[in-house]
Computed example of a mutant assay.
Amino acid sequence: MRALAHPARLEILDHLSLIKDGATATECAELVGLSPSATSYHLRALAKVGMIQEAPSRGDGRERVWQVSFRNYAVGAERDAGAEEIAAEAAIVEAFLARQNERVRRYQTKARAEKDEFFDVATMTEQTLMVTAAELKELLTKLDELIAPLKRRDREEPPEDSRAVSMQIRAIPIV
C-alpha cells in the first residue's frame, strides 16, 4: 500500500491502466511533470510491488516500456491489521482522495469553458441512503454492471464526441 501512497505513482498507475500498449518513463514523466529519471524511480517502485511490469518493446529494444499487471485493484487493510498496515492504508486513502479532489478542482476552474452538453451533465451530488449491507452490495454490483461497457480501457471504438470522465462513487456508512 505504501508504494501507492504517492500522487505521481497513482497518476502513473492510472495512465498505464488506461492504455493498452504501455508507456515509457519519458512518456509518463510528461504526464506527471517529473524528470524521466525521477519517473523511472517511481516505475521501479511500482514494479517492485507487482503493480506494473515490463511490456514488450516497441522497436529496437532500447526503450523500457511498462504496463499494468492487473485489470482492477482494491486497497484495504484487514480488520485485524496492525498499526503499520493501518497507517499504510490511511496514507493511500489520503493520496487517493487528494487526487480525486484535485480532479474536481481542476474541472471547476474550467467548467464554464466546457461544451454545453458536458457542462449540463457534470455533477457532484450526495445522496443519503437507508440500506442494509446486502442492499448496498446489490446496488454497487448493478452500478458496476452499468459502468463496465463504458470503461475507457475496454471501449474499443468510443463515439467521436466522447470524453474521459472521472466517475467517483463513495459508499460509506455515516459515523
Rank of each mutant, 00 (worst) to 15 (best):
N101E: 13
T141S: 09
N101H: 12
E126A: 14
I86W: 08
E160R: 15
V75C: 12
E117R: 11
Q108H: 11
D116H: 05
E114V: 00
A87N: 15
A77Y: 13
A133Y: 04
A134T: 05
F118V: 01
L150I: 00
T141I: 02
E156H: 10
A113L: 09
R105S: 06
Q108M: 12
V65Y: 02
E85K: 06
A113C: 05
N101S: 14
V131C: 03
A148C: 01
E94K: 07
R79I: 12
E135D: 13
F96L: 06
W66L: 02
E160C: 05
E114H: 05
Q127E: 12
P149N: 11
L146M: 14
Q127P: 00
G82W: 12
E114K: 02
L129I: 00
G59Y: 04
A111T: 00
V68M: 02
R64E: 03
I92G: 00
L97A: 10
A74E: 12
F119E: 03
R152E: 14
R106G: 01
M130A: 13
R152T: 09
F119H: 08
V75D: 10
R71Y: 04
L146G: 11
A87S: 11
L129C: 01
E156C: 03
R106C: 02
A95H: 05
D161M: 02
D60R: 15
E84Q: 15
A91R: 04
V104W: 05
R155D: 06
D60N: 12
A77G: 14
R71A: 11
K137L: 08
R99I: 00
E85M: 08
P159K: 04
I147W: 05
F70Q: 05
P158Q: 05
T123V: 08
A90D: 10
E135N: 13
V104R: 06
P149H: 08
V75N: 08
D80W: 15
L143M: 15
A98Y: 07
L129Q: 01
F96V: 02
R79K: 09
E94S: 07
P158T: 02
A91T: 01
G59V: 02
E138I: 00
G82L: 07
K142G: 12
A83D: 11
E85N: 07
R155S: 07
R79G: 10
E85C: 02
L140F: 03
E117A: 09
D116C: 01
F118T: 01
T132K: 13
E102N: 03
L150K: 05
Y73A: 11
A87G: 10
I92N: 03
V131Y: 02
R71Q: 11
V104H: 04
A90W: 04
R112W: 05
P159Y: 04
S69R: 15
K142L: 10
E89K: 12
E89M: 09
A87C: 09
V68F: 01
L143C: 14
E114A: 08
A77C: 13
Y107P: 00
R103V: 03
I86P: 00
E78P: 06
R79E: 14
R71H: 14
N72H: 06
K151L: 15
V65K: 01
R103Y: 11
A90Y: 05
